[in-house]
């Protein structure tokens, strides 16, 4: 369970508000977040695992405060970035997953076995010893996901995980995320994917302007965008 209590974020240097005080309780297993570029979606997502801390108010995950118990929160909350390349650290696929397991499994052989099992689970076993630079964008995103899942989170927050992928990979990664037996919170520009959630948040100008039924949310977002586009065109 994720609880925002009047959590607000401002730009560190200018003090400009990035996210207005927000109160939310997120319990559904499939939640999507949509909104325009620069509206504050990533900020909202990052609040959940303490990558961004609220300036006022608080964010709690299963009762753990992201400010005071950040490390504990991050073990519960896996985070998937748009660009998997920046998330991969070790030279080969299996080593990268093993890195996630370093703290938990001290024995190298056991760790490598577990990492290999994680790769097998996600369908990347044949790429275990391949350099991460030789993987396709889609494979890299899968690998990043394997690295996240290896830490056995109970929540996965994904910030536009499919934006850089082609249609086929987008469908594959999307389906995989939906199949996870975890709470998944996905920031996305893919409205079809957003509409498949149980609950959708629409963010605009640093505020959650809608929170509820995905289909309604998508409709509202379209209206918002096209309304603004015609305004921009006439201005």
């Amino acid at each position: 369970m994720i609880e925002f209590k009047d959590a607000a974020v401002v730009a560190p240097d200018s003090g400009v508000p990035i996210l207005e005080p927000t109160t939310l309780t997120l319990t559904e297993d499939r939640i999507s977040i949509i909104g325009a570029n620069g509206s504050g979606k990533s900020t909202l997502a990052r609040l959940i695992n303490g990558l961004v801390l609220p300036v006022t108010g608080s964010v709690e995950v299963d009762g753990l405060d992201t400010q005071k118990q950040g490390a504990q929160v991050r073990r519960k909350v896996g985070y998937l970035f748009t660009d998997a390349s920046a998330q991969l650290i070790m030279p080969t696929a299996v080593e990268d997953v093993a890195l996630s397991l370093r703290r938990v499994i001290k024995n190298r052989k056991e760790r490598d076995d577990a990492a290999l099992a994680a790769l097998r689970e996600i369908g990347l076993a044949s790429k275990a010893d391949v350099s991460v630079n030789a993987l396709s964008g889609g494979q890299r995103q899968l690998l990043a996901l394997a690295g996240v899942l290896a830490c056995t989170p109970s929540i996965v927050v994904a910030d536009e995980p499919t934006t850089l992928l082609d249609l086929r990979w987008r469908a594959h990664v999307g389906a995989l995320l939906r199949s996870l037996p975890l709470q998944v919170i996905e920031v996305t520009h893919d409205l079809d994917s957003a509409a498949r959630a149980e609950r959708t948040l629409v963010v605009d100008l640093g505020r959650v302007v809608f929170d509820g039924d995905p289909k309604e949310a998508v409709q509202l977002y379209r209206d918002l965008m096209f309304g603004r586009a015609s305004q921009g065109a006439t201005a």
Partner: peptide
Amino acid sequence: QALHARGIAE
């Protein structure tokens, strides 16, 4: 940030 998110070296 990715390291941080993966809880590595905290």
